[in-house]
């Protein structure tokens, strides 16, 4: 089967990218294993953790951080379009795109957050797994919007390998579809970090298991971790190597038709920097914009 763009991964980043493209008539396929970090959504998105200026906080981010690759002006500009984007999907977010506000957590701690969907994202802790009904609903609503716009959402399947020709990815193969390829001009890798299995670790190393993209990580396992649970955990920043345009890199060479979006991009610590949702959404919007510009 043939698409304009195939997106691997079905979480927040994949859906934001897919919807943005379908809104402009780019025919997309999303291949989702069914897992999404959205299922554990707190109710608020974070762009960057700060009680001051977001832009200034971003200037202190390390080189190689996804925001710095995208460009801080562009991050703020894309950020401005986010409330509008979710409004079109039926979600009125509270908060302002360029200023954090404070939300209380279930344990009574306060958190600086960016845009809030609802403050009851995470009530159930007794007797059930900590799944967020709000996050599950949002995932379903975004998927519905993507499909209404004409996108195909392949649920419960997983890409297992790709085929390359002349330095470009030409097609991917999935677990359920065996030897039938899915062909596209452009591909977006939004398969997530370790939790979503976008990255896989073994005692001897870390890899991106689908396309074997180059991964940025320390080789010595002892250096992956912080001593205490709440210390910096270097593994949090591990991820796929990519260009400033978020093109993936394989065997040292840029793959010009494969983009990386969301937490698979290395260089960010979503927890310590409070940038998980921000990187997911902003990188997806940036990748979608480039795909649109190229297909004009």
């Amino acid at each position: 089967m043939r698409y304009d763009t195939i997106i691997l991964g079905g979480g927040l980043s994949a859906l934001v990218c897919g919807i943005s493209l379908q809104e402009k008539g780019v025919k997309c396929l999303i291949v989702s294993s069914g897992q999404s970090a959205l299922h554990f959504f707190s109710g608020s998105f974070e762009l960057i953790s700060t009680d001051g200026s977001q832009r200034e906080a971003m200037e202190n981010l390390p080189d190689g951080h996804p925001y710095r690759k995208i460009g801080l002006d562009r991050v703020m500009e894309l950020s401005k379009s986010v409330p509008e984007f979710f409004a079109r999907a039926g979600y009125a977010l509270s908060g302002e795109y360029d200023r954090n506000h404070v939300e209380n957590t279930i344990l009574g701690s306060q958190k600086q957050v960016w845009l809030t969907v609802g403050s009851e994202g995470f009530p159930p802790v007794r007797g059930k797994l900590p799944i967020s009904p709000l996050g599950v609903k949002m995932q379903m609503d975004l998927r519905k919007r993507f499909e209404i716009l004409g996108g195909d959402y392949l649920m419960g399947d997983r890409a297992v390998r790709g085929e390359f020709r002349d330095g470009r990815l030409t097609s991917i193969f999935t677990e359920n579809h065996g030897s039938s390829p899915f062909i596209a001009d452009k591909f977006v890798m939004a398969t997530g970090s370790f939790f979503s299995r976008g990255l896989v670790s073994t005692p001897s190393g870390i890899c991106e298991p689908v396309l074997h993209l180059d991964v940025d990580c320390c080789s010595d396992r002892e250096e992956w971790y912080g001593k205490g649970f709440f210390d910096n955990q270097p593994y949090m920043r591990f991820g796929a190597v990519c260009s400033d345009r978020l093109e993936a890199v394989r065997e040292g060479k840029v793959l010009p038709n494969v983009y990386v979006a969301g937490s698979l991009i290395g260089g960010a610590d979503p927890i310590k920097e409070g940038c998980g949702a921000g990187v997911a959404i902003i990188s997806a919007l940036y990748v979608a914009r480039q795909i649109l510009e190229e297909s004009l």
Binding site: T105, T202, F229
Partner: peptide, 21 residues
């Protein structure tokens, strides 16, 4: 902490630090 153990560790950090603050 590799394989599933690292996956779970990342999730725990996300839950206790990220969500519960």
């Amino acid at each position: 902490a590799w394989g599933e153990a690292l996956r779970e560790a990342q999730f725990s950090s996300w839950l206790y630090e990220g969500v519960y603050g």
